[in-house]
Design a protein around this nucleic acid. Structure first.
Length: 506
RNA sequence: GCGCCAUUAGCUCAAUGGUAGAGCAGCUGACUCUUAAUCAGUUGGUUGAAGGUUCAAGUCCUUCAUGGCGCACCA
């Protein structure tokens, strides 16, 4: 690493020693503050120019701007609620303290105490009577004008991104509100939040390649869950009627603007409901989230104007394909294969008809759906956990919610016929044996549970990250994850060695 | 996995194949109501890594690493 970095680091470490030598501990244990920055600003916003608050306030935060004027200096500190200006004067805090005040670096945490006044330019400001260092920062912050632009560093060192790019924090605050709101929404409707295993003995509940891990003491290979579905259904068997689980699932697949190897999904199950009921629930949930968090149903995402106002369009998968000029109605297997070939679907000879229909849909329908749309009634073959359609042969009662070309939710009338389920899983097991990494396992315990009897039920999964993307207009899933998955960098080593050398020299 | 692009000081960015620069940050000095404070001076670079072409490479070529975007796969 460069000499330069060493210099910047060295100077800050020397200052840390200097503070300590002057009797100001650089890492004290606590600080009693009376106000947040926002509270102090709100409380004293009515002050007239040069008027001063009767009492002192204590505020703590990170120093983010400095403006020195010789024997006085303005600075700006930032806490979770915002920024507030402070003003330190030589004759107010004394020569020794003022020398330390001048030595503060951008990024240092300080606790400041003093009366509040309004400057002649109208800014509410704390006039220091004293201050303490609360944490010495040893790394320089990015530039105050442009902040941190480098996407790689923003993702890898999110803590720095959060310090200097306030709009990033806003996205995550909104994410937290959306999650909280969904919980409240469901609890208000009598749903119970539950937790089921994340380490699974078997792969199931979705079509996806899992991460494998290993339990040493048991000598047991395990899978990180790809979905909580099969456990939540066991709870329906056990007598719970309305449950949901919000949590991380893991899929060992490619990464893109809408895929991260681990992501947050909510699954919701309601006994005695079918997929029509669940469609209503989904629509209401998303609309409520948008209204409460954004205050509007007109949103923009990746350049598209999207209107979330209900009711949303509901169209069958076959009709949606027809609208794109792909008419599969009354086509036999032969005819569908011919169309797939004409449309340039690769490997169409080796996959089943249901899968072909799905591929055609993924390729020609989903990317074109911008406005919220429920695509309903999927091929039975690719939906091994969904109930057969009550009136259409070869199809299941299933829907996917598409917004802005992204699948946001997936739901079905849940299959509760244990004989049918056993046959479907058997087919999955055959696919698995033939090398399909995404196929379901033959889960005997799950089948036994169904054999005890599961009430008719509707089930739903929503990708929380994607929902947050759409509601906050973030173009990439990485922008709604604090710490998106990144490859480790091998070149990090010399930096560590340098830090160690620095430690030893002290 | 494939294609395109990017990687230069702590940060943000420049540099027709011909002496690596600026702003901010840092350091020194001046300045007791500034706010992207200002003014003067100043430190800081193995140009992501390794090879190659050339009298000469930040710049051209090859390989690699990391990232971004698009495609593929997937939710």
């Amino acid at each position: 690493m460069s000499e330069e970095l060493s210099d910047l680091l060295k100077i800050r470490r020397e200052k840390m020693d200097e503070f300590r030598a002057q009797g100001m501990e650089p890492y004290p244990y606590e600080y009693k503050k009376t106000h947040s920055a926002a509270q102090a600003l709100a409380k004293y916003k009515g002050l007239k120019e040069h008027e001063e608050s009767p009492e002192e306030v204590s505020v703590a935060g990170r120093l983010v701007l400095k403006r020195g004027h010789g024997k006085a200096a303005f600075a700006t500190i930032q806490d979770e609620t915002g920024r507030i200006q402070i003003y330190g004067k030589l004759d107010a805090i004394g020569e020794q303290k003022y020398a330390l005040y001048q030595k503060l670096d951008m990024g240092d945490f300080v606790g400041v105490k003093g009366k509040v006044f309004k400057t002649k330019t109208g800014e509410i400001t704390i006039r220091l009577s004293s201050f303490v260092l609360l944490s010495k920062s040893l790394h320089p912050l990015p530039e105050k004008w442009h902040g941190l632009q480098d996407k790689e560093i923003r993702y890898r060192e999110r803590y720095v991104d959060l310090i200097v790019n306030p709009e990033v924090k806003d996205v995550f605050v909104k994410r937290s509100k959306i999650v909280s709101l969904i919980r409240k929404f469901l609890e208000a409707r009598g749903f119970l939040e539950v937790e089921t295993p994340i380490l699974h003995v078997m792969q199931g509940g979705a079509a996806a390649t899992p991460f494998e891990t290993f339990h040493d003491a048991l000598g047991l290979p395990l899978f990180m869950r790809i979905a909580p579905e099969l456990y939540l259904k066991r709870l329906l068997v056990g007598g719970f009627e309305k449950v949901f689980e919000m949590g991380r699932v893991f899929r060992n697949e490619g990464m893109s603007y809408k895929h991260n190897p681990e992501y947050t999904m909510i699954e919701i199950y309601q006994a005695y409901a079918d997929y029509n009921d669940i469609m209503d629930l989904t629509e209401e949930l998303v609309v409520t989230a948008a209204k409460e968090v954004l205050g509007t149903l007109e949103i923009e995402f990746r350049g598209d104007k999207i209107n979330l106002a209900p009711p949303w369009k509901r169209i069958t998968l076959i009709d949606a394909l027809k609208k794109e000029g792909i008419d599969l109605e009354k086509k036999d297997e032969e005819g569908i294969r011919r169309i797939a070939k004409a449309k340039g679907i690769e490997g169409a000879e080796e996959i089943g008809v249901g899968k072909i229909i799905n591929v055609l849909y993924d390729k020609f329908v989903e990317p074109n759906l911008r406005q919220p749309t429920f695509i309903i009634d999927h091929p039975l073959e690719t939906s091994p956990l969904a109930k057969k359609h009550r009136s259409k042969a070869g199809e299941v009662e299933r829907f996917e919610l598409i917004i802005a070309g992204m699948e946001l939710a997936n739901a079905f009338s849940e299959l509760n016929d244990p004989v049918d389920q056993r046959e479907r899983l058997k087919k999955q097991a055959e696919l698995k044996a033939a090398g399909d990494l995404e196929a379901e396992s033959m889960d005997e315990d799950f089948l036994r549970a169904l054999e005890y009897g599961m009430p008719p039920a509707g089930g739903l999964g929503i990708g929380i990250d994607r929902l947050v993307m759409i509601l906050t207009n973030q173009a990439s899933i990485r922008d709604v994850l604090f710490f998106p998955h990144m490859k480790p960098i091998a070149a990090a080593k010399p930096k560590e060695e340098e830090m160690r050398a620095l430690d030893e020299s002290n």
